[in-house]
């Protein structure tokens, strides 16, 4: 045993992790490859072509739906993450107080309802507001998405907070830092990985939603998933692969940018 194991490694963990990453990307690779298919099938290879990218790009409905999806997902994820962070701070590291369990159950409640039910409930509720106010913009979709994104953002943040060391914050308080300062300088940096995890989860969850969106949307408010739902019923073409490929590319670009920016700040 020339090289004894590293403390940080567990037997087989690296193998499983690598297998996970491989399997995670295998279907994605197939998806991307067929985006460049010449034929109109998503399973038979007919030669290389960019026609489906051109088709998607010139399809106004697709372009609009893509932008709308990104708009809704980013608004909902940001608002949900802020609300969830505050709620997590309020519900962890405390003795049990009246209403704590209630809060916990309430915040996680959107998780527990089948989407179709939330969809129908919101349809009925929002329809009344739409009729009364005359406003039927994207606000309803953002509100609905924010609500079901909150538990997804809340849980990782809470998990992070739960066994976070109080010593540093106490030290900060002892040094007469205002609660806000102590939060910004001490708690927030420590909490950051949880917040990022929550934000990313909320974002992809919003980007994924079909059923609730289907019921809440008004005229001209198709998102990419609701658009694709219609396509799938009547036969999909590699156009869907092409759009997905663009989204993947976009995610890589955004993530890379984010990565370098945060590096710089450090």
């Amino acid at each position: 045993m020339a090289k004894r194991f590293s403390i940080r490694q567990q037997t087989g963990f690296t193998t499983i992790a690598c297998a996970c990453f491989f399997l995670l990307y295998l279907p994605i690779a197939v998806l991307v490859i067929f985006a460049f298919n010449e034929s109109s099938s998503v399973s038979d290879w007919g030669g290389f072509s960019l026609r489906w990218f051109v088709a998607a790009w010139s399809n106004q409905q697709v372009v609009d739906a893509s932008w709308r999806s990104l708009k809704i997902a980013s608004s909902a994820a940001i608002i949900a993450t802020i609300a969830a962070t505050m709620a997590a701070l309020a519900t962890t590291r405390t003795r049990t107080y009246r209403g704590l369990t209630f809060k916990y159950a309430f915040i996680n409640q959107p998780l527990m309802v089948p989407e179709i039910v939330t969809g129908v409930a919101l349809l009925i509720f929002f329809a009344q507001i739409k009729i009364a106010s005359g406003y039927n913009g994207l606000g309803y979709l953002i509100a609905a998405h924010t609500a079901f994104c909150i538990p997804f953002a809340y849980l990782p943040i809470r998990a992070r907070l739960e066994n976070m060391d109080l010593t540093l914050e106490r030290a900060a308080a002892d040094l007469y830092a205002t609660p806000w300062k102590a939060f910004r300088r001490v708690t927030l940096p420590l909490l950051w990985p949880g917040i990022i995890a929550g934000l990313m989860l909320a974002f992809v969850i919003s980007l994924d939603d079909v059923v609730i969106t289907e019921f809440v949307k008004s005229g001209g408010q198709d998102t990419l998933p609701t658009y694709m739902l219609g396509q799938i019923r009547r036969g999909i073409t590699p156009e869907v692969n092409a759009i997905s490929t663009v989204f993947l590319l976009l995610s890589v670009v955004i993530v890379t940018l984010f990565f370098f920016l945060s590096r710089k700040r450090d």
């Binding site: 129908v120 329809a127 019921f215 008004s218 005229g219």
Partner: peptide, 12 residues
């Protein structure tokens, strides 16, 4: 049907 019945959809 469900959506149109509830109204406020903005469809013509």
């Amino acid at each position: 049907l469900a959506k149109v019945r509830q109204g406020g959809t903005g469809f013509d």
